[in-house]
């Protein structure tokens, strides 16, 4: 297997072959580029180090635990109070016999975000300390696949919709879980904006080429 020109790139949306951009002066270095044919976003150079991503993803992973287990809200209705956490909401659906919906919701709201953050933390750690590790490639692929199924922001908006539906029929008290979940969503969005997969891939050593 031989590589042609290592710097050559292609647009992921229209397959246009793009020659490497070589700025003469350091102030000419661009932080992002668009495909001249289809206008798609080509790359944005990382504005932060993998260590920043590592720190942020550990923060998010820590927030993930209370966000999932602490109650999102407490609802008082007909004399009794019901406290519900994110995990309980999924488990209840499963107990009602809706295995498929429960699984889909579990993947999108808990499993995919957790696995994505974990893979990203591992990938960041390896790209700082062990760029030779074959696992780095594996984690980077996982991050890409899992980020499609992580839907934290959708869940937060859904929660607000449910809240408006409930507020007329019962007394609602917001829980600690909601604060953690909101913080988790903000951290997650920040990570997705700062994380640049091509920067990580450039650190991976290519077979046969030093």
């Amino acid at each position: 297997m031989t590589m042609t020109k290592p710097q050559l790139s292609a647009c992921s949306h229209c397959d246009l072959l793009i020659a490497p951009y070589q700025p003469q002066r350091p102030q000419d270095i661009k932080h992002s580029a668009k495909c001249p044919r289809c206008g798609s976003h080509l790359y944005h150079k990382a504005q932060c180090q993998p260590s920043t991503i590592l720190a942020l993803s550990i923060t998010a992973l820590l927030l993930l635990i209370p966000a999932n287990t602490y109650p999102l809200l407490a609802m008082t209705m007909i004399g009794t109070t019901e406290k519900v956490s994110l995990i309980q909401a999924t488990v209840k659906l499963y107990q009602e016999g809706n295995f498929f919906i429960a699984l889909l919701i579990f993947i999108c709201s808990t499993l995919a975000p957790a696995m994505m953050l974990l893979s990203l933390a591992c990938a960041s750690y390896l790209s700082i300390f062990h760029t030779q590790s074959p696992r780095l490639k594996l984690f980077l692929k996982w991050v890409d696949h899992l980020s499609h199924w992580s839907m934290l922001e959708v869940y937060l908006v859904s929660f607000l919709v449910a809240l408006i539906k409930l507020v007329d029929i019962a007394d609602i008290e917001l829980g600690v879980g909601l604060i953690c979940f909101s913080l988790l969503m903000v951290t997650n969005s920040l990570i997705l904006t700062l994380f640049d997969p091509s920067d990580y891939w450039d650190r991976v050593t290519v077979n046969g080429i030093s």
Partner: peptide, 8 residues
């Protein structure tokens, strides 16, 4: 998601 919260 709304349904799952309402059901719970």
């Amino acid at each position: 998601f709304v349904i799952s919260i309402m059901v719970a």
